[in-house]
Amino acid sequence: MTIHKGRGFACINYPIGMNLGGDPAQALVHSTPDGKFMVALSAIDLGQGMKSVTRQIAAETIGVPVEDVYVDTADSDTGPHDMGSFASRGTHRVGNAVIRASAEARKQMMEAAAEELEVNAADLDTDGKGNIHVKGAPSRSITVAETAIAAQFKQGRTLAGRGIFLIPPSEANPETGEQTPVTCFAHAALVVEVEVDDETGDVEVTAINSAYEVGRALNPKLVEQQLIGGAWMGVSHALYETTEPYYPARDHGPEDFNTYLMPGPGQIVPHHIAVLERPAEDAPFGGKGPGEMCANPVLPAVANAVYNAVGVRCDRLPITPEKVLRGIRANGGARPKGRA
């Protein structure tokens, strides 16, 4: 029995969102009479941080503390329309809609404050701490809460905004087939290290080193958490998960969490991540979002690492011990490819 070490590389250009029907997202923002802002979305937070990141985006755009913004992603029956949480589109599409809605709400807030302070709205600025003041004269100020109360009870005005983000449709050129289906790409490259046992066919991932370019990381800890969790899922898809039958027949296929294999806490792989920030022009504060590509490149990298370790090319996932052993046998033994 020999354990063969291998190393595999993969990289990815990941299109953010899709362009079927413009991939629209809508957001509505309004203030409550005490000067808090409510963002209504139908984009769903599955745990990827949709609520946190849209909250940051709204707070930054309106110019109020993040604590004073609430995001409600309650219900697609009653909320503004959204295409959904998929295709790594959340931060980009929904974030852009939130910026537009928040900018309109900010404009109304500044006009209401201007009326109270008897100045021109263009001369006002926010301090991000809940106050609006005359530029260059911070003492001439009014709180956001006072502004909202005045708007609600005196001026009869709402502090609200509507936003939609739509990608312009791109027709394919009939001559060349050329098209611009997406406006920005995120990128990643990663190296996976494995150990392959040539007697059992077992593959163990021992390390992942990755570099991700996700535009500006609007919430760096959330980005890191998604990258770590996504890579775990990539390893799981590469080596374990399938609903197809194992041996010898369909009845032996997995039916529940007992028999559907996934790596557990005992198989944690050290993952070193470098996040590179190259803000995209049409992205909210430059953030493209990590999304699906947290998991995708891990699979080819593992397959390449197995090839590098024992010379077996698996073109079906998951790369089970059976497939590795059959490959080794077909080759007449392990054929390590050495360090590429």
């Binding site: 958490q225 969790g229 899922m233 969490f257 996934m262 557990g264 806490p265 944690i268």
Partner: peptide, 20 residues
Amino acid sequence: EVIEAISGNLCRCTGYEPIV
């Protein structure tokens, strides 16, 4: 011991490391 204690708990999102 931590890994053993949570080995009956599945997590689909985090990759377990942040939990440990």
